[in-house]
Design a protein around this nucleic acid. Structure first.
Lengths: 168, 168
DNA sequence: TATTGTTATACTCTATAACTATA
DNA sequence: TATAGTTATAGAGTATAACAATA
């Protein structure tokens, strides 16, 4: 098939090229997008960004949310156990708990059986915030992701990420 | 079906329970693993960790590798363009380039056409390191991921991550 | 006036050593 | 002696404002 263009007929007529000039074109990624690590990082940043937006009314970061969720599901555990499960180093967990305790979302209680350790418990306010947070996450945040990918793909994605996290 | 256990017969005999005692059991994740953001983060950390291991002989971080790869595929671009494409802020890009230039992997050259901007170019050594890096990434790093997931799933994963990065 | 590279700076995350009080 | 929580600290990574040179 041959389509005659203006520039084919009269070279003195300026025809803007379909592509924008090279200087302002999007750069070549050179296979970077096919690197799983790169794509994981870009996707993760986008998802965390949206998480923060959805959680703005409650002022909870992803890490803070994960702490409240774990405390609710594992009453009576100490700081070391919670931090380790979330991949947080014990020294760094101290300031995090200071903030959440300062907001009256949880309490540290010396364990009667082992007075070295703190038993962590959600306060009433902590449970209330967590309940609202879970609702926001499910309806605003994760729902949009499921809508974007489709429920089947979303589940497949979770499965593959779990495989990488546990077996790679 | 009834299986008589020692403890059913003689309560004075101590039989270790099938489950380990509650105190040392893995914690309940409370649905955290079904949060895409959480799983993305955990997987991304694992993948970056392996990337660093594989790249140890060349001493290249994921970010440094991405810079070299982009320079090789986009000769003549300036700092602002490269940084922006990689999601790096211009001020933070300066120190990164200082390190790579200090290792003689790239050069900054004042552009003759616009003397405000630097044209970035890989040196001979930079191209050599990049070639070795690409080989290491393909054969040691990404190959293991493809083996773990299977090539079809690996491709599907990349596609979903791209969807999230661009459309979420 | 606007843009490029740069400096200064600050805030978050992450990582390690060492202290204290308990065991 | 070993462990839990903590402090101090250092290093990445990320973010914003502002300056000098140039357009």
């Amino acid at each position: 098939m041959t389509v005659s263009k203006m520039s084919d007929i009269d070279p003195t007529v300026h025809v803007p090229s379909v592509e924008p000039p090279l200087e302002s074109t999007a750069l070549q990624m050179g296979g970077l997008s096919e690197l799983l690590g790169y794509s994981l990082k870009r996707a993760q940043l986008k998802v965390f960004e949206d998480f923060l937006r959805c959680m703005a009314p409650l002022q909870l970061t992803p890490a803070q949310f994960s702490v409240l969720l774990l405390l609710d599901n594992n009453p009576g555990r100490n700081q070391t156990e919670i931090a380790h499960t979330l991949g947080i180093l014990r020294p760094n967990f101290v300031a995090m708990l200071d903030v959440l305790e300062g907001r009256d979302l949880l309490t540290r209680m010396r364990s009667p059986s082992d007075r070295r350790s703190h038993v962590l418990m959600l306060t009433e306010k902590g449970r209330a915030i967590l309940a609202r947070a879970k609702k926001l996450v499910a309806t605003k945040h994760e729902a949009r992701l499921i809508e974007l990918l489709g429920p089947t793909h979303h589940a497949a994605l979770l499965a593959m990420l779990a495989t990488i996290a546990t077996e790679f």
